[in-house]
Design a protein around this nucleic acid. Structure first.
Lengths: 320, 320
DNA sequence: CTTTAGTATGCAATTTTGTTCAGCTAAACT
DNA sequence: AGTTTAGCTGAACAAAATTGCATACTAAAG
């Protein structure tokens, strides 16, 4: 077996430089030129170091005041969907930035609400990736992260496996992964994969989780599930024809939140949807107006405790 | 009567605008001009709102400063485990880069601390491979490298034999290898192998080494010892059931650092653990949060002089 | 020892941000 | 009503940050 090397090394491995530069720039308010003198590196390099620092979450931005309108929406959402908590952030001006903003809020929420000993079952998605990226790196004792999804056969930057690893690393958790592809080629293979002892073991651990963190996917064309090519365009069309409004944990669901009857749903290697009820606290992290339909579906069929979303989606969900 | 001025009266009482602007600017990364369009105010006003938001602490910047901590950790480790030296590097942003970063530090350490005439007993692991890789190719007179482990039956990129050879080549050392497989098929074969004159000769040379460089392995699923397949998954489970937390020189040890009673440990062809006490300076090179348990075990039972590790592991080791 | 692919670096052009200042409005005062 | 004054606004300019591009490294391959 080959050892898979991860090539995605940081461009500036010197964490000291990043921390110093970020401190001077953001906290101290110095100009990049001045910092370049202090650190003795080129002015442009300082800029690139700062970019890297932001990228990697070495600097974090915390916005304290809540937006009044969002607070109102939060209350309505709690009421309407029986949530124990809701977080609504302002919508991104640019649609494609929604995951960034929601992820930021999710990171803040998780940083405050994950406790020692927690077992976290983890889904997959762009929003979750951003959330994990912005999580502060602070070990939390005896935590466990369990992936609820199989991996990708070709390594990709956005990958259930990678996400779980990163999350676990940030909080110093033990990490369990499903060592199977997220979609098997054929239903029988799925059954064979899922009956593996090692797989069953991980699913069992997920079932014992006290927190699940997951998001939903829509059919919009920048959705990773559509782009990575493990679902064929023709299948996507079939799924939509069968009434699917999007996916949760890579299961495609209809407007009522029930899995649609399609071969793709019989090929998915993931934690079973109906078993989500075994997990006491489910955190749904998703937003953007294009996800309203699938979020509504998910909320209809899954007992969500905490919803982290944006204004657009909140308004859409409450809309009718 | 004096009128008390509220000197901190905000120029922009509209907290809503401040919060929204801050989200768009810092989290979403929009330009001030773009924000001015969205919020329907002038560009300059956006700038002033953002200034006010910073001034008043509505936005806060947090920088994860790991470097300062590292020095503190080094001191604590020396104290706690009676080391003569400790090196702690910032943890890799990406979990899988931990060996790279620690290896880098180890290479720097070795380059400075290997002297003419030294005899180096060498273990095996991914971290060590990276260390050897980054060693400068500079001959050091009359040095000797002795492998403490047998070889792999099928040639692999990550291989005790190869590692020793590369190390020796880099510093122009004489190189001695154990001409036996790292795991014999059966205990009796191990005994037969190890009693070979040629093997005894190499073990004897290792015992006379003045430096040992080694790392530990954990049960995590990217561990080479798990992946190369010379230990069956069923055996790995048995070992864990028997209390093993990981391996050192391919001997599986329990939380107290003692070899567990299992057939696998009677099949290993390697330098005997208890004879490590004959080597005056032992350098342990390992890190990553998943290795904390086995590192603690190793430190409990082996007189380590120098520990080269990362922040995660250092914190974990000092944790309780 | 040379080649070469990949990476890092800094320059220059462009965009974005920060600052100053004069103009405007409207409430308060004469 | 006329004047004052404080506060806000945006134009114009100055400073800083960002990006594309060309060049100079570095390390692996020939």
């Amino acid at each position: 077996m080959t050892i898979v090397e991860n090539e995605r090394a940081s461009r500036f491995p010197d964490a000291e430089l990043k921390a110093r530069a970020a401190w001077h720039y953001y906290v101290e308010g110095l100009t990049q030129e001045r910092i370049s003198e202090i650190l003795g590196v080129g002015r442009i390099k300082v800029h690139r170091i700062l970019s890297a620092a932001r990228e990697e979450g070495v600097v974090q931005f915390r916005i304290r005041d809540s937006v009044v309108e969002c607070v109102v929406l939060e209350e309505s959402l709690k009421q309407r969907f029986g949530l124990s908590q809701a977080v609504v952030v302002p919508s991104a001006a640019d649609r494609s930035n929604a995951p960034l903003m929601i992820g930021h809020a999710a990171a803040a929420y998780l940083a405050d609400h994950v406790n020692a000993g927690d077992v976290i079952a983890l889904g997959w998605g762009r929003t979750l990736k951003f959330a994990i990226n912005e999580l502060p790196r602070r070990p939390i004792a005896r935590t466990t992260v369990v992936s609820m999804l199989g991996g990708l056969t070709h390594a990709q930057p956005l990958n259930p496996t990678e996400s779980a690893w990163d999350f676990a690393e940030k909080i110093g958790a033990e990490c369990f992964l499903l060592p199977v592809p997220v979609y098997a080629d054929r239903p029988e293979q799925r059954d064979a994969f899922m009956s593996q002892r090692s797989v069953q073991d991980v699913v069992f651990r997920a079932r014992r989780a006290n927190i699940a963190v997951l998001s939903v996917g829509s059919f919009s064309n920048d959705s990773p599930i559509a782009n990575y090519g493990f679902i064929k365009p023709s299948e996507l069309e079939e799924l939509q024809a069968a009434g699917a409004v999007g996916d949760i944990l890579c299961h495609f669901i209809d407007a009522e939140g029930r899995p649609v009857d399609h071969e793709v749903n019989r090929r998915v290697c993931a934690y079973p949807l109906q078993d989500l009820s075994d997990i006491p606290s489910i955190i749904l992290v998703s937003g953007g107006s294009e996800k309203v339909a699938v979020m509504r579906a998910a909320l209809a069929n899954i007992k969500v405790s905490v919803l982290i979303t944006d204004e657009d989606a909140a308004k859409g969900l409450l809309g009718r």
